[in-house]
Design a protein around this nucleic acid. Structure first.
Lengths: 350, 350
DNA sequence: TATTAGCACTTTAACATGGAGAGTGCTAAA
DNA sequence: TTTAGCACTCTCCATGTTAAAGTGCTAATA
């Protein structure tokens, strides 16, 4: 079978040119056109032999007998992993991103802008997860009495963001009592990360026997209510989905519909993006690699971004598998870095 | 020309059957099929004459010489205004809506559910505006110091909803001072509607000369910052957009793209929905009537919903002009009423 | 006078036909 | 090992044909 043996320098060079050509033209590429466009001086016939091998290895595929070849997901994968020559962004392209992401205070706005920028520069769909709250630190918590046993819990994180949640307490508290509880919690937990706080609270609840007075007990149980599974709110911002409508790969309405439904339900996208959180740097899912049928004809190029040197989110681009990876990868990479920079607390204090 | 004269009972009856038939079949309807399906016992030839008149009046239109007729927007309008026989919902259909909208506390969740229900029962796109804040009453305002001159303003409206905003004050305030300011504002404005509060504040700011002490002055100027143009946040919840992809009217990708872009930008939709706020009850925009090119092949059926007998929002359904109005109208109507009921403070207080 | 039958005409949709073009696989020669 | 040559396959496109559906007009009819 000599499979491995066949994958010599020449075959790889040929596969590279084939993928490049298919990406730029969108048509199955045949032996004649490859013979002209590759550096190698080979006749179409020779190229046909090589292509036949590539097909046997599952790297390319022929839509029908007399069409050229098209890369498979596996072919793209090999291309991206070992053949791709990334084209760094030029000055102008950098500037667009840089200007777009500077001078914005609000976290939500920055994230939104990043997503929009990604979709604009790539003409595909841009996606950015909201920064994980788990890792941000609690600055301040406050309780406000509403009616009866309803209490509004407000917590400020990271200097910037304010979140609130209505909790139902077991009994009615006076404003003073609530203030006292908040003071207690602030004195202990302020500055710690939300996930740490959550853990600590659960721990404290379990050893109630400890020498805690009623007030402290109340405070802890309220904090428990305030922080309980709030992380479900994991979310992302998607922009430029409509760009995808222009790709012939998605001209089929059922396919398009499924894709947009997946966008709307968010679940699968979140799951997919979560996978990218684990590793640092640029990651790529090509076609069926994602594991979701809906994305069979799509690729996802992502990178992580950080605050205080901790990875807090993912951003990326969704487009057809036939995308200009050599350009998309640096775009995603650079945007991730710029977003990190934009979100990090400025060193120059006011 | 005898235009008016021609629009006798018979022509109207024929137009009605034509529209009904076109809505259910989706094919241009010809004289033969009309002759069979209308109650009138008329030969195709006679019907052709009548249709010719209808065409002259701009009520129907022929795609090409040997196709049947299709209603125009004007034709649909006449149909909807004077010919339509609305089919009230049966028990089962009512139940779906009723069960879907009961037992939910959170305003946002209710609105979301309503939108989803609308899209599910109609198999088109459902839309619900968030209740206008202008008309809700302020219950409580609170200020929380952040760093330096940044202050977090929190206001609770309507018992239910909590909003917050970071404001930048001119100088630094102590927690006590902020508390004092909040107390002052609460004593004066609590219970009034947000728009009233906003007006009153602007008025107070203008006659600064009055016998106000510095604390009151500070309070008012902070309130001004907290409430300034926050109404831009007018928003709506759209569901089931993807349902629209199944309609042949929207098979054209450029059209579909424009429509989805309009959904994403929200501006035009908000504007359109705002128009519906003015009148009470069900309103309908058919095709080009909306004034937005994107909606030329769509119709919008809306109704208003209320809290405390005040109209606070609009909900509706977006679909192709060729929709089953006799069913959609009651669906929208009933959903609006159920939503009003769900949002109104329960009379049985805890 | 209003309605209808009849007829010629138009348009579309569906299907068959027949190259042209592009590309392949295989074989045999270089 | 590479290449030229050739038969073969498949798509695309233009063309033609036919059937079905519908129209407008005219003349007959009630």
């Amino acid at each position: 079978m000599a499979n491995k043996q066949k994958l010599n320098e020449r075959s790889l060079q040929l596969l590279k040119t084939l993928v490049e050509r298919y990406i730029s033209e969108g048509q199955p590429v045949g032996s004649r056109s490859l013979s002209k466009n590759s550096q190698l001086q080979l006749s179409p016939a020779t190229i046909r032999n090589v292509m036949s091998d590539l097909e046997e290895l599952g790297l390319v595929h022929s839509p029908h007998t007399s069409a050229g070849r098209v890369p498979t997901a596996k072919g793209y994968r090999l291309f991206v992993d070992s053949l791709l020559t990334v084209k760094p962004l030029d000055k102008e392209e950098m500037d667009v991103l840089q200007h777009g992401l500077e001078n914005d205070e609000d976290e939500a706005k920055i994230v939104d802008k990043a997503s929009r920028l990604l979709s604009e520069v790539t003409q595909m769909a841009g996606v950015v997860t909201l920064p994980r709250r788990e890792l941000v630190s609690l600055r301040h918590i406050e309780f406000l009495p509403l009616s009866n046993t309803r209490v509004l819990a407000i917590f400020v994180t990271n200097e910037q963001e304010v979140h609130n949640k209505i909790i139902h307490t077991s009994k009615q508290f006076s404003t003073a009592k609530l203030q006292e509880a908040a003071n207690y919690l602030n004195s202990i937990y302020s500055g710690q990360s939300l996930s740490d706080v959550r853990q600590a609270i659960v721990a404290e609840m379990q050893q109630t026997q400890k020498q805690m007075n009623q007030a402290m007990l109340d405070a802890v149980s309220m904090a428990h209510l305030a922080f309980e599974n709030d992380q479900v709110k994991e979310d992302f911002v998607l922009s430029g989905e409509t760009n995808l409508m222009d790709f012939s790969e998605l001209a089929d309405m059922t396919l398009l519909r499924q894709l947009f439904e997946a966008f709307g339900q968010k679940r699968s996208i979140i799951h997919l993006l979560d996978k990218c959180l684990e590793a640092d740097g640029v990651q790529i899912f090509i076609g069926e690699e994602s594991g979701y049928d809906v994305f069979d004809c799509c690729s996802l190029v992502t990178s992580t971004y950080s605050v205080n040197d901790q990875i807090v989110g993912v951003l990326g681009v969704i487009g057809p598998t036939r995308m200009a990876y050599e350009k998309i990868i640096p775009y995603v990479d650079v945007t991730a870095k710029l977003l990190s920079a934009a979100l990090n607390p400025k060193t120059v204090a006011p």
